[in-house]
Design a protein around this nucleic acid. Structure first.
Lengths: 119, 119
DNA sequence: CTTGAATATCGACATCTGTGAATGTCTTGA
DNA sequence: TCAAGACATTCACAGATGTCGATATTCAAG
C-alpha cells in the first residue's frame, strides 16, 4: 500500500488504529483527503466504481456502464470524469471505446486512513 | 465488526477483496452508503471527526472543538450535527457541555466496504 | 472524405451545501 | 428569579453539484 494520503509519523510504528483516530488530521491532510471522499460520496459514482472494480478483467467499457443506469450518457460521462479526476479510475482508450479501471491502491489507502486496522 | 452496511452474500465466505470490488453494489446499497461518505467528504468534518476520535478519552467537548477552527460556532455546530445524523458521532450532554464520541464501528465498517481486505 | 457510432464538452437549470448573523433553548450560579 | 455561558436552530445567501439537451470530438468503416 502506498503512503501518499498521509505522511507517516514516528508514532505510526506503534500503529493501534487508523490515522484518522490516531491523531488529529492537519488542515492540509484534510484538504487532500476530502476530494477523494467527495468523489465517492454519490450513489451513482459508488455503483460505477463498483461495477468497474468488480468487472471481469478489472476494467469496464463505458458502453456497458451507460446501460446500467437510467441516466443520460453525458451524466455518466460526467461521473466517470469526477472519479478519474480524483484518481480513483484509470482511463484507456482502445479504438472508439474507452475503458475504465479501478485504482485499487487509492481505494485501500483511503480505507486504511478512515478506519484502517482493527479499530 | 458489524454487518450493517452491506448484506453479506454466500460469496463473501471466499472473501478476496472489499464488497465494493467483489460485486456490483446495488442501487439500494449505494443509497445507504453514500450519505456516510458525504458526511465525511468535507475537510472541516474530517478534522472534527479526527479531533474527537483521537482525543484522550475518545470523546471531546464542543467547547474545545470550536477553538480548533477559524469558523463560527454555529458552523461547527452544523458540521457536528451532520456527522451525528450520519451516525458517525455519538452525542452526550453533561451539564452545560456537550461531548461527542466517534462511532468506531461505523468507521471501520465504512473502511471495510471501500477498500477492505488486502485488495 | 463522408458517414455513423462512442464519448466528451458545453450551457442551463434546479437543488444542495457551507457559512455567518441573529436568535432561541438549557443549565448553572448568584 | 435573573444573568451569563454553552450549544442549537433559523434565516439568508453565495457557490458547488447533479442532471439533461445540444453539440463537439474522435475513430473505424466504406
Amino acid at each position: 500500500m502506498s503512503k501518499s494520503l498521509i505522511e507517516l509519523t514516528p508514532t505510526q510504528t506503534v500503529a493501534c488504529c487508523s490515522p484518522l483516530m490516531r491523531e488529529p488530521l492537519s488542515a492540509v491532510q484534510a484538504e487532500r483527503v476530502a476530494p477523494l471522499l467527495k468523489a465517492l460520496a454519490d450513489p451513482v459514482r459508488l455503483r460505477l466504481l463498483s461495477l468497474v472494480a468488480s468487472h471481469a478483467d478489472g476494467e469496464a467499457c463505458v458502453c456497458d456502464l451507460n446501460d446500467a443506469f437510467d441516466l443520460s450518457q453525458p451524466t455518466i460521462s460526467h461521473h466517470l470524469k469526477v472519479l478519474h479526476d480524483a484518481g480513483l479510475l484509470d482511463r484507456s482508450k482502445r479504438g472508439v471505446w474507452v475503458y475504465y479501471r479501478a485504482r485499487n491502491e487509492a481505494l485501500s489507502d483511503l480505507a486504511a486512513m478512515i478506519g484502517g486496522a482493527g479499530a
